[in-house]
Design a binder for these strands. Structure first.
Length: 516
RNA sequence: GGGCUAUUAGCUCAAUCGGUAGAGCACCGGACUCUUAAUCCGUUGGUUGAAGGUUCGAGUCCUUCAUGGCCCA
């Protein structure tokens, strides 16, 4: 459990109306809890010893026939098992009843035979409500329909549930309630449980992927006196003791590169970033990023690594590299398509490759896409604004977009063959940006110039421009080896892997407006 | 920020042209020795998201607000 400093929610979001069915049900269930107390049973007990999981029993007896199990019970050789979990269903007859118990591993049927049970136990079973946490001890059997069941001989409500569960067949469809009361969603929505299991499995895969390649996992500050590493607006906060403004990080990039300077030549960090921007099906103010840096590598090396990572992840989770994505089917097998910004503008926006630097041609395209304030944009911003508008939504199959303008890439290494561009790529899949990578700029003087250009952009109104970071330049002056680095949006990656088109479906507790 | 759309019982959904707010699940009572969305019989449960307005009469029409969803910026 969480230790100390526990902030209790100021307001209880309980909306139970007096005289409603809900109020009636809660009252009835409280009365049952009181009745348990009167009978010397704690309705919130914690003294039940679990010996097995539902799925363990299902696996262990998967091959056992009804006759074998009956014979074991008759001979007294059958083993007794204790399981505990939430009572999810109850089907009661005159002298027989069945229940469904769900623990963290899955479901197992419970069976009750009145003639073989004490009146107290039968009555406790009858009084148990759907949603109660129950503990059961019994022997394994098969019903006449062949279903494996725990033939219960001890049964207790361990924790009384006071609120009714949603419709057992339709579950919960109201998205607002699903997100606000995720605990209920997880109880009744198998797809939600599956998505979050998949997410956890994906994170283990990613850590193993980098550990296997001799990367070191590191953690760098989320509270920073100076933010940077991306073009975004930060959250601000305040440290009382130092009476100092602090920012929540928008990216870990600059600190990770400081570690490369320090000699940790392969590092990765999987952690939260915070951006003070809008909320949509693709954006949550806090999100999880994976960033990794490898010295003596180029952005082209990272393309290969990224292909390996993503197709490997799909194989790990699904055993295949073709995945459903809404109405599309993604093919995540390597190699991924590569498309330069220049070619993208030519193919999708009708800006010929020889007009790539032609401001008028770009403005004409920007007008077609109704891009606001295009005339005020520096050339690189204009190129990217048109590119994003024209191409992004169409980049469904994995595509490395390469050769970004230098203007929009203040931390990337200059392209030697074309110094107005940088050695950078973004990976698009399913019409959204998944990854951003580049060969790192390690020339401290060039870096200072880039920062200065950003400071200038900020002065002329770009509030997402990168601030000056003198210490980072000082670090580069000690020499950072040639390095390539990449950031991957984990939430979006999980969306792809689980076929969820809203980021809210891959976050346990997405940020929402307050209920009241 | 703008447009469209939704909000009815704890949950999932109905309600014709503006004319008595209903059903299934859950709950409560009853029947039932093999169900698995059990079945059958009988009950209970409503400030129709909130506040105004139009009307003899509003779940339904209008305005504002709240909270979602989709699209746009």
């Amino acid at each position: 459990m969480t230790q100390s400093n526990h902030d209790h929610q100021a307001k209880e979001p309980q909306r139970t109306r007096p005289n409603s069915t809900e109020a009636k049900i809660i009252e009835e269930r409280r009365a049952k809890a009181e009745e348990m107390r009167a009978n010397g049973q704690n309705p919130f007990a914690n003294d039940f010893k679990v010996t097995h999981l539902a799925s363990e029993l299902a696996d262990k007896f998967a091959e056992s026939s009804a006759e074998q199990l009956d014979a074991a019970i008759a001979s007294g050789e059958a083993q007794s098992f204790s399981i505990a979990g939430r009572l999810m269903a109850k089907r009661s007859f005159g002298k027989v009843a069945f229940g469904s118990l769900r623990d963290r591993s899955g479901d197992l049927q419970l069976s009750f035979f009145k003639p073989e049970l004490s009146p107290e136990l039968w009555s406790a079973m009858k009084k148990a409500d759907l949603g109660d946490i129950v503990g059961c001890t019994g022997l394994m059997m098969r019903t006449q329909k062949g279903e494996l069941s725990l033939k219960v001989n001890h049964f207790r409500v361990l924790t009384k549930s006071l609120r009714p569960l949603p419709d057992k067949f339709h579950g919960l469809t109201d998205t607002a309630t699903r997100y606000r009361q995720r605990y209920v969603d997880l109880i009744v929505t198998p797809e939600a449980r599956e998505t979050f299991k998949m997410r956890s499995k994906a994170l283990r895969y990613l850590r193993a992927f980098f550990d296997d390649r001799d990367y070191m996992e590191v953690e760098t500050p989320m509270l920073q006196p100076l933010y940077g590493g991306a073009a975004a607006k930060p959250f601000e906060t305040h440290h009382n003791a130092l009476d100092m403004k602090l920012f929540m990080r928008i990216a870990p990039e600059l600190n990770l590169k400081r570690l490369v300077v320090g000699g940790f030549h392969r590092v990765y960090e999987i952690n939260r970033c915070f951006r003070n921007e809008g909320i949509s099906t693709r954006h949550n103010p806090e999100f999880t990023s994976l960033e990794f840096y490898e010295a003596f590598a180029t952005y082209e090396d990272l393309m290969n690594l990224t292909e390996e990572l993503i197709s490997g992840l799909a194989m790990h989770l699904h055993g295949k590299t073709t995945l459903a994505w809404g109405e599309h089917e993604l093919n995540l097998s390597a190699p991924f398509r590569r498309l330069s910004v220049r070619d993208g503008l030519a193919q999708y926006a009708g800006v010929p490759t020889d007009k790539f630097y032609d401001r008028d041609a770009l403005l004409e395209a920007a007008a077609r896409y109704k891009i606001a304030k295009a005339d005020k944009m520096p050339l690189g911003y204009l190129q990217m604004a048109v590119f994003e508008e024209a191409c992004e939504a169409d980049l469904i199959q994995p595509t490395f977009v390469t050769d970004f303008p230098l203007d929009v890439s203040p931390l990337s290494r200059r392209k030697e063959s074309e110094p107005s561009l940088v050695d950078r790529f973004e990976l698009y899949v399913g019409g959204q940006e998944i990854a951003n990578a580049f060969s790192e700029l390690n020339d401290p003087d060039d870096q200072r110039g880039r920062f200065e250009a950003q400071v200038e952009a900020r002065a002329s109104g770009d509030d997402e421009a990168h601030p000056m970071d003198e210490d980072f330049i000082r670090a580069l002056e000690y020499a950072m080896p040639p390095t390539a680095g990449e950031g991957i949006g984990i939430d979006r990656l999980i969306m792809l892997m689980t076929n969820n088109t809203s980021i809210r479906d891959v976050l346990f507790f997405p940020l929402l407006r307050p209920e009241h």
